[in-house]
Design a binder for these strands. Structure first.
Length: 261
DNA sequence: CGCTTTTGACCTGCGC
DNA sequence: GCGCAGGTCAAAAGCG
């Protein structure tokens, strides 16, 4: 369970890992069908509210980013990359490596890559390697690999574009005999999660996990931004006011019916 | 021989 | 328009 408090709104917690649609309280499992349906409907309603809030979050975040002077530069590994990740087919994965053994910037993800450039960037002394997919001639997929500035044992792989072919080889898990000295996709994980999973962007489940990761990163970076906290407060306040006004209107309607009856 | 890697040069986009 | 920084190109070298 990963719950986050957003900025100064200490009483607002969005549970980023739990989808109300998918979780049934075990204590309710023996209830009758009617109660189960009622519970399900309540969860659907909560899920819709969360989606509305996230929609407002994304819109406000994009508005804020538009006001920044310079284009997203990787001065911070999470906040600057997010707008690109939202608006295009860009995703980022973090790969834990052993810095004493892994000196090359190689991330084995099941695809065949050809290195076409390497560059030392201003904000990170470790070189950034540029790869193109060499398995299919016209495949637009690219990736950039660079060591994390904060944690040298972490490789940051940025994927751009989609493969229009299947992986060239099966993903090998370390537990099932991964090659020593290479980094397999099985060790790829979200920055803070301890889970391990293979990387297959065509898999809807993986896409959902990536979306969840993006939401976590967005929330994490946004909570450090006072301007966005204010915007979020305004959005939520507006949302709550809408609900209050809606309820009041319904009360008024029912009351007026009571008077007219 | 064909493929990959290396690396300096060049191109491009953005802020000033 | 200029300078800066990131991204890409392409020739040379390495490797199996």
């Amino acid at each position: 369970m990963d719950s986050r408090h957003l900025g100064g709104l200490s009483n607002l917690t969005i549970d980023l890992n739990t989808n109300p649609m998918h979780v049934i309280n075990p204590s309710h499992q023996t209830q009758g069908d009617d109660e189960m349906m009622e519970e399900l409907n309540r969860m659907k309603s909560e899920n819709k509210k969360l989606n509305d809030i996230l929609t407002i979050l994304t819109r406000n975040y994009n508005d804020l980013m538009k006001t920044r002077k310079r284009k997203a530069v990787d001065t911070h590994e999470t906040s600057a990359a997010l707008p690109d990740m939202i608006k295009s087919n860009v995703s980022r994965v973090y790969v834990r490596i052993d810095p004493s053994h892994d000196t090359n910037l190689v991330v084995k993800d099941g695809y065949q890559w050809r290195k076409y450039g390497q560059k030392v960037t201003r904000d990170n002394p470790s070189p950034r390697a540029y790869y193109k997919c060499s398995f299919a001639p016209a495949c637009p997929a690219k990736k950039k690999v660079q060591r994390s500035l904060n944690d040298p044992s972490l490789l940051v792989a940025t994927y751009e574009g989609h493969h229009h072919h299947r992986p060239s080889q099966a993903t090998v898990s370390p537990a099932t005999g991964g090659v020593a000295g290479t980094t397999t996709a099985a060790s790829i994980s979200g920055e803070c999660s301890g889970s391990t999973e293979s990387l297959d962007f065509s898999d809807p489940l993986t896409c959902r996990q990536i979306q969840q990761f993006l939401v976590e990163k967005m929330a994490s970076s946004l909570t450090r931004n006072p301007a966005f906290t204010a915007a979020l407060a305004a959005a939520i306040t507006g949302r709550l006011l809408d609900e209050v006004i809606s309820e009041q209107n319904q009360d008024l309607v029912s009351n007026s019916r009571g008077f007219s009856a």
